[in-house]
Every structure is written in C-alpha cells, then in structure tokens.
Amino acid sequence: MRENIGFALMCFGVIFDAVGCVGLIRLPDLYNRLQASLKCVAMGTSLILLGTMVIAGLSPLSAKAFLCLLFILIISPTTEHALARASYIGGVKLWKKSVVDKFKEDIDKS
C-alpha cells in the first residue's frame, strides 16, 4: 500500500517535470520560461522526493530526501530571482505583447 502511494506520487512528479519542459519550449520569452521551469519543475522534483520519503519510511534515505526537498525549496526561487534580475539588467527584452513594464518606466525616470 505504502509503495503504491509512493509510486503514484513519483508518477505525478514526472508528469509535472514533463509539463515544465513543454512550457520551456512553448512560452515566448525568458521571464515566462523561467516561471514554467521554476514552478512546474520544483513541484515535480519535490513530488518525486516525497514519493521516495513515503517508500523509504523512517530511514537515512528519507532523511536525506527531506533535506534535499528543503534545499530545493530554498534555493530554486533564489536562482530564479538572480537569473531574472541579471537578464533584465543585461538587456533581455520582454515579450512584445507584454502589457506593462513599470521597471523600465522607473529606470527611464531616474
């Protein structure tokens, strides 16, 4: 029973990872792609690790999986923020159908 739940969680995780990769191809510009690759892939990876924890029970393996889950949840938004900021300052343009860009307005003003 426990193994079945674990494998089901892992399957959902792989599906989310695949959706993240589809988003990486389909979406138009860097910022939207970053969001797809953060949200869906972080969800997929944490579901896979959760499945590992459920299968392994209370053991060294599940403790390490828990640590990995924690560090992924801390580190992935930080890298996303760093990439977004660096690429904006480096001059990567928004998608041409974007509706509003307050950051550019404020940079032009100052």
Binding site: F16, V19, G20, V22, G23, R26, L27, P28, D29, Y31, N32, Q35, A36, K39, C40, A42, M43, L94, W95, K97, S98, V99, V100, D101, K102, F103, K104
Partner: peptide
C-alpha cells in the same frame, strides 16, 4: 503549479505578461 501547467497546456496559451 497547477495554474501554470494549465496555462502551458492550453492550446491558445492564455498569458498576459508584464512587470508591475
């Protein structure tokens, strides 16, 4: 994550991006 998976898999790609 469910919201973004829906947007990615929708055939018309319902996004309306911008910086606020």
């Amino acid at each position: 994550s469910f919201d973004f998976a829906y947007r990615v898999l929708h055939p018309e790609l319902p996004i309306n991006p911008g910086i606020i």
